[in-house]
Simulated assay, not measured.
Amino acid sequence: MTPDLIPRLIAELALADPRLRKDDDAERRAQSLLWAAALTGVPYDFALRAAREHYRTSPWSVMPADIATRWDTWSRARLARHTDPTPAVDPDRSGAWCRELGATRRAVAAGEVEPTPAAIAEGPPLAVAELVAGIGRTPPTRDGAQYIPAAAGQVLAAFRAVRRAEWTIGCPVPACRARPGDPCTRPSGGRLSTGSHPSRLDAWLVQQATA
């Protein structure tokens, strides 16, 4: 709020609360300077609305801190709902990139533009079963984009087929000796995190080469 608006604000509030009115010229100047310093950046309409809300619950005269505190709380709440959109400038121009981000945030905090919601909040939620089905493969996305390129997906599919095929034979590792169809185990008895020992895959490859 600009200093020239402070006398107008105090005069309007004094219509409801005469205690704010100062008769001495020096006191009025001091009051205006104090309020102007405390309410820097606070829009006039917001200050007036905040003062009215103050008088709804308090019999005490409104002070600059009452208005400034409400403004800070309101601005922080708007920023908490805001997700920075990608600036339109070239990302290699780091200075311009940061300036645009800062300008957008200031505009959101000042109430000049609405907060930008997070993209994840847009669109209907995906079903849990749909998400689980894509684990380790190609997770579904709302925009149709694929997290795993098609070529990489084909390589992974072939790899998974080999991993499943090697279980058709037993494990040759003496400390394991897993039977066909069973996963390999550690000497302690726990299941091997990779599913099978490398020797088991080697044995399967030899079997396929000599078949």
Rank of each mutant, 00 (worst) to 15 (best):
T2D: 15
P3Q: 05
D4S: 12
I6L: 07
P7V: 12
I10V: 14
I10C: 06
I10N: 07
E12C: 12
A16G: 11
D17F: 03
P18S: 06
P18E: 11
L20M: 09
K22W: 14
D23P: 01
D24C: 03
D25R: 15
A26E: 12
R28G: 05
R29W: 04
R29N: 10
R29P: 03
Q31M: 11
Q31E: 14
S32M: 06
S32V: 11
W35Y: 09
A38W: 01
T40S: 14
T40P: 01
G41Y: 14
P43F: 13
Y44T: 08
D45C: 00
F46D: 06
A51N: 06
A51I: 02
A51M: 06
R52V: 03
R56C: 14
T57M: 14
T57I: 14
W60I: 15
S61F: 00
S61M: 06
V62A: 13
M63D: 11
T69M: 13
D72T: 00
T73G: 03
R76S: 10
A77W: 00
P87S: 05
A88R: 13
D90E: 08
D92A: 15
R93F: 04
A96N: 04
C98K: 09
R99H: 09
E100S: 04
L101Q: 11
G102W: 07
G102A: 14
A103Q: 13
R106S: 02
A107P: 08
A107K: 13
A110V: 10
G111A: 02
E112H: 02
V113A: 04
P117V: 01
A118G: 14
A119M: 12
A119N: 05
I120L: 07
I120T: 12
A121S: 15
G123D: 03
G123L: 08
P124E: 15
P125R: 01
L126G: 07
A127C: 05
V128H: 12
E130S: 12
V132T: 08
A133F: 10
A133D: 15
A133T: 10
G134W: 01
I135M: 11
G136P: 01
R137P: 02
T138G: 09
P139E: 05
P140Y: 11
T141D: 04
R142T: 00
R142I: 08
D143I: 09
G144E: 08
A145P: 04
Q146Y: 13
Q146G: 05
I148Y: 14
P149K: 00
A150P: 00
A151R: 03
A151T: 02
A152I: 10
G153T: 01
F159T: 15
R160K: 11
I169A: 08
C171W: 04
P172T: 03
V173N: 07
A175G: 05
A175T: 14
A175K: 00
C176L: 04
A178R: 01
R179F: 02
R179W: 05
P180L: 02
D182F: 08
P183Y: 05
C184T: 09
R186G: 05
P187G: 01
P187Q: 07
P187C: 05
G189Q: 02
R191I: 08
S193V: 08
T194E: 13
G195D: 10
G195P: 09
G195L: 08
H197D: 00
S199K: 15
S199F: 02
R200T: 04
L201Y: 01
L201D: 00
W204T: 06
W204P: 03
L205W: 07
V206D: 15
V206I: 06
T210Q: 07
T210S: 12
T210F: 03
T210K: 11
A211G: 10
A211N: 10
